[in-house]
Design a protein around this nucleic acid. Sequence first.
DNA 1: ACCACTAAATGAATGCCATTCATTTAGACT
DNA 2: AGTCTAAATGAATGGCATTCATTTAGTGGT
Lengths: 229, 229
Amino acid sequence: MSAAASAPADSHRPEARPRRRVGRPAAAVLDQNGITAAALQLVRKSGYDGFTMAALARTLNVAPSALYNHVSSKREVLVLIQDHLTSFVDVSAFDAEPWGVAVRDWAWSYRDVFSKHTPLIPVIAVLPVTDAPKTLAMYEAVSAGFSRAGFPQERIIPAIVALESFIFGSAYDVTAPADIFDSGSMAASTPNFTAAVARLAEQGDQNQADVAFSLGLETLIAGLGELRS
Amino acid sequence: MSAAASAPADSHRPEARPRRRVGRPAAAVLDQNGITAAALQLVRKSGYDGFTMAALARTLNVAPSALYNHVSSKREVLVLIQDHLTSFVDVSAFDAEPWGVAVRDWAWSYRDVFSKHTPLIPVIAVLPVTDAPKTLAMYEAVSAGFSRAGFPQERIIPAIVALESFIFGSAYDVTAPADIFDSGSMAASTPNFTAAVARLAEQGDQNQADVAFSLGLETLIAGLGELRS
DNA sequence: ACCACTAAATGAATGCCATTCATTTAGACT
DNA sequence: AGTCTAAATGAATGGCATTCATTTAGTGGT
């Protein structure tokens, strides 16, 4: 299922691991799926600070250098994690629900998955889709939904990118400290900001981040929906 | 101008550098402003990969350890850079222009500044405003603009956060490779996505990232503008 | 003029880290 | 039995942020 395994024999990735051939030793301890699973488990247990190649090798009972037979860098492991996580993003509503509902479900799900993995955001955001087949599958499902909903073809990608940008930015908010907007000793010199923060806190039952995400998302859904013919 | 310098004698930051006292040696080679300026210059020259404490010390003709008399960690240097950069974000339109125009100018300026400094985004996004006085000043200017435009107080912060999230996510897009959406050998299995990418490319004169940013931003401006009373 | 004090500098040391490489191991074909 | 090769090892490399004992050099008080 990896990019390397399903790619043709072109020269796109110069150091792509070759396909398994007849005449090999059968009992490889490691492979990309196993590495991905172990990596994700390690991240869940130790966070991204504790996620080192040495620690990953330890959980696999292998020397750190052995990983480099299957993966060309730590970044590639991050890409594998990212692509795997993307398969947990729920796109099912695009098959069954009206466009607005589908986008809402997808966006919340997308944000929730990556708010627990914000260190991957800089990786995802600039990663060519060719290197992430499951991510590409998500785009296909979303694009199909937009197309079916009547979006002009040339607006589909910009609309998805705009939504995604909003989602990535919002994923960070989820991890922000609760008092991020406490102006402290500077309150006196920032009256408008301080007042707005106070008024929000007054009625603040809900999560800070969820209120802002909901507001932005509903605005985007309503506005982008107008593009449909 | 730093947070530490203007904070009261509370216990908020346990290791805050003490204020200058009478009886000190006068000729300090380093201070936070100098470090910030040198750090920004280094980043511009060498990027964030080349930005190390050792390299920063070298440009200041000082031993790496000397930096730690003025700064408690590399992260704090990143915070200093971030706050300094924020002063380049243009909020002037909030004084002179209608709300929609002001938000548009601010958002483009904000995105442009940080698209050249995406490694700071994970830092900014979760940074308490108390630690970044110039950032706080930006929020004050923006909040004042929203307030003057007739926004209900309790909606101001969520609206700003939503816009900011979109801006941060969009800043990454600017740095993405041009062929990020080329589905390559998987094109056959992703017909909707591939068609949408192709149709966009056809009329693509403009920058990918700018088209999506403009679409999302105009949608948000139009939709959020409705909240005004 | 001297002393005591202290902020700020040094340079060596620590403990990580990702990555490389020469070498070894052990299955699978002939 | 012999050959080939993917995949493993373990040592080495060069880098990193950060700590700390020590030194340096202004300053104010005497």
